[in-house]
C-alpha cells in the first residue's frame, strides 16, 4: 500500500493544476487524466475500506452465525438479528443509541467550543507560557493510560459524594470526563488552522469597533468552519467508540452507551452473539456516517477561499 501511495503521489498533484478548463466533450484520454483516474483510485480504495466490513454486514444477516464465516459471504439473508436487537429488555439497544447520540453530541459540541476558545487564545494572543502551554497540552495526552480507569473511578466516586447527579452512573459525569480531553490534539489542529486566517481580518474588525468576543464568535468561527467540523466529527467518533471509561462510569444498562452495551454481546466467551453484535455495530455506524454527510459541506465547502480576502 505504501509503495502504491508513493507512486501515485506525484500524479495526484500534477492533475488538478495541469488542466485549467474542462471542455464539455472531453476525449477519453483527457477525461482520464483529469478525473477518470481519480475514480479508479476511489473505487480501489472503496473496496479496500469497505471489504472487511462486508463480513460484519454479512454476519448481521446470519442469525446465530459467526463473525468470520469461512468465506461464504451473504449465505443467509435474514433481518432477524436487527429485530432481536430491539427486543432484549436487559440490553436496551434503543436507549443505548439515544444515549450515544446525546453524549457524543454534547461532548463534541463542548470539545469544539472549548478547543476553539483555547486555539483562539493561542493563535491571536501573546502571553507568558504560551509555547510551553501549547506543548504541555500535547504532552499530557501522551501519558500511557494504564491506570486512568482507577483514577477516574476514584475521582468520580469522590464527586458523587458531593453531587450525585454528576458523579458515578451519570451521563453528565461521563461528558465532563470527555471534556477533560477537549484541549490537546484538537486544540492543535484548530490552532494551526486559526494561524492561516490572516490577522489583518481581526485588525480590520477591531478598527471597526468590534470587541474580542464579537470578533471571535462572528468572524473567526465562521472562517474556520471546516476545522470546527473536522474536530467535531473526530471527537464524536472518539466519544462514541470509547468504552473503557464509559463502562466504569455508567452503571445502569439504560444509561450506557453503544460501545459499552455492544461489547456485552461478545464479551461472554461462551455465549457470544456475533450476529446481533454485528447488527448493532452496523446501525451504530449510521450516526457517524450521517454526521459526516451533513458536515462534509462545511469541511470542504471552500468557505475560506471565498471570505479570506
Amino acid at each position: 500500500m505504501t509503495t502504491a501511495t508513493q507512486q501515485h503521489n506525484p500524479d495526484a498533484v500534477i492533475d488538478p493544476d495541469a488542466a485549467v478548463v474542462g471542455h464539455p466533450k472531453r476525449p477519453f484520454k483527457r477525461y482520464f487524466r483529469e478525473t477518470g483516474w481519480r475514480h479508479l483510485v476511489g473505487i480501489a480504495m472503496s473496496i479496500f475500506a469497505a471489504f472487511p466490513l462486508l463480513y460484519v454486514f454479512s454476519a448481521s444477516l446470519n442469525p446465530g452465525g459467526t463473525l468470520v464465516t469461512a468465506n461464504s459471504l451473504f449465505s443467509n439473508f435474514s433481518f432477524q438479528s436487527y429485530v432481536d436487537l430491539f427486543n432484549r429488555p436487559q440490553q436496551p439497544y434503543a436507549a443505548w443509541f439515544g444515549n450515544t447520540l446525546l453524549i457524543g453530541g454534547i461532548s463534541s459540541l463542548g470539545t469544539v467550543f472549548l478547543g476553539a476558545l483555547a486555539a483562539y487564545a493561542f493563535s491571536r494572543m501573546r502571553f507568558i507560557g504560551r509555547r510551553v502551554g501549547l506543548l504541555t497540552l500535547l504532552l499530557v495526552q501522551m501519558f500511557p493510560q494504564l491506570l486512568a480507569v482507577v483514577a477516574i473511578f476514584l475521582l468520580l466516586s469522590g464527586i458523587s459524594e458531593i453531587f450525585p447527579a454528576i458523579g458515578l452512573n451519570s451521563q453528565i459525569g461521563l461528558i465532563m470526563v470527555y471534556l477533560g480531553g477537549a484541549l490537546g490534539v484538537n486544540t492543535y489542529l484548530m490552532y494551526g488552522f486559526f494561524n492561516t486566517v490572516p490577522s489583518s481580518i481581526d485588525e480590520a474588525a477591531k478598527i471597526d469597533g468590534a470587541g474580542h468576543a464579537r470578533i471571535f464568535f462572528t468572524i473567526i468561527l465562521r472562517l474556520v468552519a471546516p476545522i470546527l467540523a473536522v474536530v467535531g466529527l473526530l471527537s464524536f467518533v472518539g466519544t462514541t467508540s470509547e468504552f473503557v471509561i464509559a463502562s466504569i462510569v455508567l452503571i445502569d444498562p439504560d444509561k450506557q452507551t453503544l460501545a459499552v452495551g455492544l461489547y456485552q454481546f461478545v464479551s461472554q466467551e461462551f455465549s457470544r452473539n456475533w450476529s446481533i453484535f454485528a447488527a448493532g455495530a452496523v446501525l451504530a455506524a449510521i450516526p457517524v456516517m450521517t454526521l459526516f454527510l451533513f458536515l462534509q459541506k462545511y469541511i470542504v465547502g471552500g468557505l475560506t477561499a471565498g471570505s479570506v480576502k
Binding site: M45, A50, L53, V56, V237, F292
Partner: peptide, 11 residues
Amino acid sequence: RIIMILPYAFP
C-alpha cells in the same frame, strides 16, 4: 469520501 471513513465508524 463517506466510504473512506467507514473503517473509522466501526468499533
